[in-house]
């Protein structure tokens, strides 16, 4: 019998309190408990983290690169959404 390999999991680590969990890589594990422990053993050997999320890779849905222009280019010309678009006189403070 050829047993199929353990599923792949994506690993996200919070490096310190106050920061987001950040994707750091992936690994194989038979179940979620093992995936978290493996993530601890693989990705936090040098105090890289204080919290771990794992998600089975098959459950991650991603945008299609072919849609990238339609998805992301329309935001290009909305410069007025950024504070630097506006001129504020130097004498005005706290804005």
């Amino acid at each position: 019998m050829t047993q199929s390999e353990w599923p792949l999991w994506e690993v996200f680590i919070r490096s310190k309190q106050g920061l987001d969990h950040k994707h750091v890589g992936s690994l194989h594990a038979a179940d979620a408990t093992m995936a978290i422990q493996n993530a601890r053993d693989v990705y936090t050997r040098r105090q890289e983290g204080i919290s771990i999320w794992v998600v089975e890779s098959t459950h991650v849905h991603a945008s299609n690169p072919d849609d990238a222009e339609a998805f992301f280019d329309p935001a290009n010309d909305k410069v007025y959404r950024h504070p630097t678009f506006y001129d504020v006189p130097d004498s005005i403070k706290h804005m």
């Binding site: 047993q3 199929s4 353990w6 038979a30 179940d31 093992m34």
Partner: peptide
């Protein structure tokens, strides 16, 4: 290691 990997897979299925 094959039997170890198989055991963990089998257990994960049972648990699920």
């Amino acid at each position: 290691g094959a039997w170890v990997r198989e055991a963990a897979s089998a257990h994960a299925k049972k648990r699920a």
